[in-house]
Nucleic acid binder design. Structure first.
Lengths: 239, 239
DNA sequence: ATCTTGTTCTTGTATGAGTATATCCGGCAT
DNA sequence: ATGCCGGATATACTCATACAAGAACAAGAT
């Protein structure tokens, strides 16, 4: 008996959610390709063993994320890749359920290399005391749990998210969930691949210290170093 | 009689689409605030004069974009701002239907200032001949139509999109739609505000020339300049 | 006080009928 | 042959109704 998928808080996923995930991963993995037409909804929902209601809602979700488009008479098509919202947190998560493309990992780190050092620089200038203590708390949790545990990885995410939030830039902050998803999954791969991975705690401490000291230049450099090392670790863990 | 809303290609929007837009703009404009609960779906769909089906699909769309969350018994809540996918192209478009927050405009330009110069630099190194001619075509269309016309603004978007695509970075490229939406709306405001706006054509030509010459450093600087000037124009046009 | 259990409210799923719209295709004019 | 026009048709879209299931809350038991 297939166990029902669960969300990040242990709640059972509704049918439309798990359908969206199932179809989404199928599209991202290349099982469906851009231009492909999904069969009519009666046919598809019948084949999947669900009613049309949740099937249609799943389609709506995927349309909202740019993976599909549907029109009367024309049917439901997979959109060309350049329309996909690859940085949508859920899309990223779906992407990482399969075997991730090393080239895409590289792209993600390249993007993080543009965003996070700048965010760290801004955070050093603009952060509030509360934001600083949030970073400190996340750092402490990372140290206590280690990156081998879910709690540790969640703390890692919180640290990066806190920096993006402290940049005082809403557009940057809204990329936090995307960056967070990337952080989580790449860290996951690193941990799985090597038994004694390099300890990234000092890198994080250095970033924190620079932000705490309100030293933008040093924060920028520290984050750049952190990302370079993290990428090297990740690259080493990939096939 | 209310005229039915239309999409960017003149097609009439389906009910679920226009509902999503209506609710989305209401949320983004602050009419609904984070934590607010929408009434039950029967009640709401009745109030809006539609059946539950399209109402629910509209909710699914907004959930997919991070603006809402809904659970049985608890109802449908507006999520806290930091969960919103502000860079989703549709969300951005909804954002600009109302009066845009000048601080957010600044944030968007700050983000573009991180992404686009780097993309231009990479494009100078990696662009294919086809991508280069796409940029040239967009540039020519901009010159022919001018930014006062829809065609001209679309060409402007195509130019920036082509550069992001030519960066060879999928993650960057997938931000093209978001950047494009920002380009379109800010340009729109500029045009509306002043009768004789500064001509940005030379800025664009400079970026193109640098990319065509495969000169990364110059491409980076030219794009930085373009964005600085565009931001100054936009800032002058805002209240 | 804390846990357990049951009630009840809200969203979630199922189903069948009917509408609307974009595509396709055949006919007509050019 | 080519292009325009208009109807047939396939498909998604909307409606209405019924039932199922999850989760919050409160009353009761421990």
């Amino acid at each position: 008996m297939a166990e029902r998928a669960r969300d990040d808080q242990g709640r059972a996923l509704r049918i439309h959610q798990s359908l969206a995930r199932q179809l989404g991963t199928a599209i991202l993995s290349g099982e469906y390709r851009p231009g492909d037409v999904l069969g009519g909804e009666i046919e598809q929902s019948l084949a999947l063993g669900v009613s049309r209601t949740p099937y249609r809602e799943a389609i709506r979700i995927l349309v909202a994320k740019g993976l599909l488009e549907s029109r009367p008479k024309a049917g439901t098509h997979v959109t060309p890749r350049e329309r996909w919202n690859l940085l949508d947190p859920e899309v990223l998560a779906w992407m990482f359920t399969g075997t991730p493309d090393p080239a895409f990992i590289r792209d993600l780190f390249e993007l993080r290399g543009l965003l996070e050092p700048a965010a760290a620089r801004l955070a050093a200038e603009r952060r509030s005391p509360e934001q600083l203590s949030e970073m400190a708390a996340a750092l402490a949790a990372m140290r206590d749990h280690g990156l081998a545990t879910d709690e540790g990885r969640a703390a890692d995410q919180r640290f990066h998210r806190a920096i993006l939030a402290a940049s005082g830039n809403l557009a940057l902050a809204s990329l936090a969930s995307s960056v967070g998803a990337a952080v989580q999954w790449t860290t996951h791969f690193k941990q799985r691949a090597s038994k004694r991975p390099r300890d990234p705690q000092p890198d994080h401490e250095a970033v924190y210290d620079a932000i705490a000291a309100a030293d933008p230049g040093r924060a920028d450099r520290a984050m750049t170093d952190l990302l370079r090392l993290a990428f090297e670790d990740t690259a080493a863990a990939l096939p």
